[in-house]
Amino acid sequence: MEANYRDMDERLWNYIDGTSEVAERSAIEQLIQTNAEWKAKYHELLDVNSLLQSSELEEPSLRFTKNVMEEIARLHIAPAAGSYINNRVIWGIGIFFITVILGFLVYGFGQIDWSSSDGKMPVDFGKIDYSKFFNNTYMNIFIMINVVLGLFLLDRYFANKRKKFREEI
């Protein structure tokens, strides 16, 4: 019963907002004309709608615009995000990670002995020695590459800032 009311409400609100399809609109018009319950509900919602249209906006203090203008007087418009997000750097990072993942996959598949599998999985995941891959040497190399990349990005960031600062001067 409650679901029916909710459905009636939603359909009527769509009708009032003008978001119903043409067929739905004529169906609702028919219901409003022939069904007393629909008619009463329609008028009730229509009253709420007109009340909402009559609601007023709040007003800030009289000094509001002046306060905002004083605040922004010390500021500059920030450059558009597109101008400082360098697409080539993003592509570079993406290509690096894809290469690393592909490298691992090629290396992994290269280690598998496909000929000795008799219809079974060629790898026994329980017997894989993960410490072989996650040992100090590999981790150090991985961290070093990331540090170098990080420093490179930091350098680019400061170079851009320096350039802009010189341009402003």
Partner: peptide
């Protein structure tokens, strides 16, 4: 309004 001003180029 201050944020909108700063980001207006966007």
């Amino acid at each position: 309004f201050v944020k909108a001003y700063r980001a207006l180029a966007d």
